[in-house]
Computed example of a mutant assay.
Amino acid sequence: MKRIILFLATNLAVMLVLSIAASLLGVNKYLTANGLNLGMLLGFAAVMGFGGSFISLLMSKTMAKWSTGAKVIAQPQTQAEHWLVNTVGRLAKNAGLPMPEVAIYEGEANAFATGASRNSSLVAVSTGLLQTMSESEVEAVLAHEIAHIANGDMVTLTLIQGVVNTFVIFISRVVGYFVDQALRKDGEESSGPGIGYMISVFVCDLLFGILASMIVMYFSRQREFRADAGAAKLLGSPQPMIAALHRLGGIEAGELPQNVATAGIAGRPGWMALFSSHPPIEERIAALR
């Protein structure tokens, strides 16, 4: 319940900030007495589409900690924590990265990396992962997450999400406008958007949003292959990553909150492959081989 309330509150706050920004910029007045102002609409769509994506990116570390309960290791207390911090530090150095924050959270086997940039990143692993995997397998998982940071995957996916969001908002309102005009009686003066516009925009936002999520998930799957390859390069061999994936394939991977689900090492396949953020483990192993 806490995660759901946090998710809803965050999204409402983001929408409020974006609505105020669009109003201050004047791009929310794309429906005029002379018809649809496409330039203004594009500006509105860009503010809403990219704005939401970049706000989410900037808040990603904080939201990840809140939603998973991850505790950052400021001063390692146990041998396991010392090993974890040292391993992340060594892998980050080999990848030419500054030291990320390292955290542990309670849960089944999984791990994720997030952050607004390579210089402000977080690598978190679950207690389940540490308990069910050998050190070499955990190291491979950590190398995978470090490769995500080195590849700039968080920013890349944010840009892709921003582009598709912009087109969804823009096209939905164009369709809504023409549907509304078609439903008006001949000679009827326009006094603002009618019910046809509002219903059409709602339906188009939903349908185009589904198509957009397929595009984003495709790129998410591709970045998993790249992160696996990056881990193999950091470790000098694909075998540790293959072993880690074999182990993940034989255990129940822990679910992550929606805001970090695409950043995990493992994810449950969607009800259709096109909506899955991660490729099947068998495909990932085949690609490494």
Score class of each variant (00 low, 15 high):
122 L>F: 07
147 A>Q: 14
97 L>C: 03
93 K>L: 10
147 A>P: 15
74 A>M: 13
107 G>K: 14
123 V>C: 10
112 F>Y: 09
128 G>I: 13
110 N>E: 14
78 T>R: 01
112 F>P: 08
108 E>N: 05
82 H>V: 09
120 S>H: 11
144 H>T: 10
116 A>R: 15
91 L>N: 01
82 H>P: 06
92 A>G: 09
79 Q>D: 09
117 S>H: 10
67 S>Q: 14
120 S>P: 15
89 G>W: 01
73 I>K: 03
106 E>G: 11
105 Y>D: 14
125 V>I: 15
97 L>T: 03
85 V>D: 12
138 V>E: 07
118 R>I: 05
110 N>A: 09
93 K>H: 14
83 W>S: 02
69 G>W: 00
109 A>T: 07
82 H>Q: 12
94 N>Q: 14
106 E>N: 13
149 I>K: 04
87 T>F: 04
94 N>W: 08
145 E>A: 06
138 V>Q: 12
76 P>C: 06
117 S>F: 08
86 N>Y: 00
113 A>E: 07
117 S>D: 08
67 S>R: 11
99 M>C: 08
137 E>L: 08
87 T>E: 08
132 T>Q: 08
87 T>M: 04
106 E>Q: 14
66 W>M: 10
141 V>E: 06
89 G>D: 06
69 G>Y: 00
106 E>W: 11
86 N>H: 04
84 L>M: 00
121 S>Q: 10
88 V>A: 15
95 A>P: 07
102 V>I: 13
131 Q>C: 13
98 P>W: 00
79 Q>S: 12
146 I>L: 11
117 S>A: 08
76 P>K: 05
70 A>D: 05
118 R>P: 11
73 I>M: 05
148 H>W: 06
97 L>Q: 01
137 E>P: 14
73 I>E: 05
118 R>T: 10
144 H>V: 12
73 I>H: 04
89 G>V: 04
119 N>S: 07
69 G>E: 01
124 A>Q: 04
132 T>R: 13
103 A>P: 12
100 P>D: 05
137 E>F: 02
134 S>F: 13
66 W>G: 01
109 A>R: 04
123 V>F: 00
99 M>A: 12
115 G>V: 10
136 S>G: 06
110 N>M: 12
134 S>C: 03
112 F>A: 07
116 A>N: 08
90 R>Q: 08
76 P>V: 01
84 L>P: 04
93 K>V: 09
106 E>M: 13
74 A>E: 14
74 A>I: 15
120 S>R: 07
79 Q>F: 00
90 R>K: 10
89 G>A: 03
136 S>A: 11
148 H>S: 07
94 N>A: 15
139 E>Q: 12
123 V>W: 00
91 L>S: 00
118 R>D: 11
130 L>V: 10
131 Q>M: 13
104 I>T: 06
110 N>G: 05
96 G>A: 07
132 T>E: 04
99 M>G: 08
69 G>P: 04
105 Y>W: 12
134 S>W: 15
70 A>Y: 03
136 S>C: 03
142 L>S: 00
92 A>E: 07
86 N>G: 10
107 G>V: 11
127 T>N: 02
90 R>N: 06
71 K>E: 13
99 M>W: 05
136 S>M: 00
92 A>H: 04
72 V>I: 11
136 S>K: 00
105 Y>M: 10
103 A>Q: 08
67 S>P: 05
82 H>D: 03
93 K>Y: 13
